[in-house]
Design a protein around this nucleic acid. Structure first.
Lengths: 213, 213
DNA sequence: ACCTGAACACCGTTCAAGT
DNA sequence: ACCTGAACACCGTTCAAGT
């Protein structure tokens, strides 16, 4: 019957997800993964093309397992809810943004969301061209939020987190930077707030006004 | 008189900028930099704290040298022009976005732009809190656009660029994805368009409507 | 087909020693 | 103070060989 393969795509993806969950993306390397599987780095390359493919497999798995709620029928609500959902799915694997960036299309298991964003936009009165434009603006906002959220998470445990910022604020000339000086004390609190949804609504309504009045 | 230091911050930054300009961020490593300076990697650490500090020095230099045009007096125009300027300054060094992300404040030589964004927002009628919120939404949009632009640049020369996307579109079920199927052929053209400014205006007007009606 | 070992061509950074 | 050499603890990936 031919000896069974020791490794498999599934086993590799499962081990990778375990590392991701317990130690973060920073710890996920082909070598570390091989060690966890009692194998060698090169054995992995028989099952996945390269590290990017492995990361995409992880996203596919994550997105496929994510619940698919019914979307509201009203087109603007559908647009907002779908865009929010796109953010929420990726918020749990923000490391994927860099991989997705190389091609500007979502992973296939998250494509239904893109379809719903475009559909909502068209049903709001946009042309298909305008709907793609709106999707891109929403995607830039979402990707930026995810990237900055991820690197905040990466550095928040450092003892000197925000040291550079505090020093910059302390050296601020109030005559030259009146607005920033006045805000200095409240800046950390204000920037720590989660304003994603509210910002998303502003972005979408701005796009709707610009295109369909 | 004590022998002069062979290396200096300035010489290191200059060599780094040369590598950045001719070969891109991917080629900028402390070891490569040392080689270009006929020195050793560790000699560099006597003049800069670490690689992140070096990258910030490069941004400071770039932003300081950038022209500082007068901004339009009308607050909404000031807001739009300042936000556009923020994008244009960073568009020439998009690799900095990751470094800036760790602290959520701009490099000091670009702070005058942040001041003007906040000022424009306040003069449009926003409270300082709302102005910081607006700045953050604008920054997310800008950072996302820059990041995706950068990785498009990184991969556009590959022979298989867009291969994954094309295959994904080809396998699309028109019944399940009517909007995307209809757009498939035009997707590459539509997503290649530079819509930054138009999107920025939509974002800003959306924010203004949401906060000051 | 699947896996191993060794190698290639790199990283950022620390440590101990030199002048 | 400034610099060097060697080392630490890693990377992703290719190549040639084994079963």
């Amino acid at each position: 019957m031919g000896r069974p393969a020791r490794l498999s795509r599934e086993a590799i993806v499962a081990a990778a997800r375990r590392i991701l969950g317990t130690e973060g993306v920073g710890s996920l390397s082909m070598r570390r993964l091989a060690k966890d599987l009692d194998s060698t780095p090169m054995a992995l390359y028989h099952h996945v093309k390269d590290k990017d493919e492995l990361l995409l497999l992880l996203l596919e798995e994550h997105a496929a397992q994510f619940p698919r709620p019914d979307l509201p029928p009203e087109p603007r609500d559908q647009l907002i809810t779908a865009a929010q959902l796109l953010h929420d799915i990726l918020a749990e694997c923000p490391w994927i943004v860099e991989v997705l960036a190389s091609d500007d299309l979502m992973a296939v298991s998250a494509l239904w969301i893109v379809e719903n964003i475009i559909d909502g936009a068209v049903r709001c009165g946009m042309t298909p061209e305008q709907a793609v434009y709106a999707y891109r603006v929403i995607w830039y906002y979402t990707a930026g939020e995810l990237m900055l959220r991820a690197s905040r998470g990466k550095h928040y445990s450092r003892p000197d987190a925000g040291a550079h910022r505090e020093k910059a604020f302390a050296n601020l000339d109030p005559a030259q930077f009146p607005r920033l000086s006045a805000l200095a004390g409240r800046w950390p609190t204000l920037t720590a707030r989660d304003t994603h949804r509210s910002g998303l609504i502003a972005v979408i309504d701005g796009l709707l006004r610009q295109t369909v009045g």
